[in-house]
Design a protein around this nucleic acid. Sequence first.
DNA 1: GATCTACATCGAAAGTCGTCGATATAGAAG
DNA 2: CTTCTATATCGACGACTTTCGATGTAGATC
Lengths: 85, 85
Amino acid sequence: MTVFKALGDATRVEIVALLAEAREPVCACDIEGHFELAQATVSHHLKILREAGVLASERRGTWIFYSLEPTALDRLNEFATLLDR
Amino acid sequence: MTVFKALGDATRVEIVALLAEAREPVCACDIEGHFELAQATVSHHLKILREAGVLASERRGTWIFYSLEPTALDRLNEFATLLDR
DNA sequence: GATCTACATCGAAAGTCGTCGATATAGAAG
DNA sequence: CTTCTATATCGACGACTTTCGATGTAGATC
């Protein structure tokens, strides 16, 4: 349910779509650059997605790279299965 | 995204689980009976799920029966596909 | 260590959401 | 047409969310 809560915001869905399209980790600065929002705001959205297990983050020197957490897909599919029976 | 918003609440997920388990339409009164919430509150949750296309409703005389809207599953899977590429 | 840049956190303002009691509507039954 | 029961809607209140500017933190570079 935390996953759904995390995905229940247009900005956060856009972040996920961005990362899905990139197919490789993207640094927070690039994600922030994609939105006309304050840096603090995007950082907050990234935190929510991370804590919901939708994104993974990894430090590389000064930068922090974000990517899709594969298990998020599993959890979505699990719910879909529940719906289907 | 409206689907995610609709599913981002514990009560609403429980309503969905209830209907998934029932495998047949359930009247609003029975759904309301499952929760220790005011009738107005459950009615509000049903409205949100209906407007998000998660539930379908059908009048049968005095009662209104709710069931899972099959296309909701499709929309979830569509998003899962987006995640997977 | 001083400084720069990337990112996170804090605290506040504005908006949205969940909840309720009260009230409205609509079909059924007398 | 009145009354009963099922459901929806309204208006209000408190709680949570989104957003921001300001500030903190941590690695890199000099």
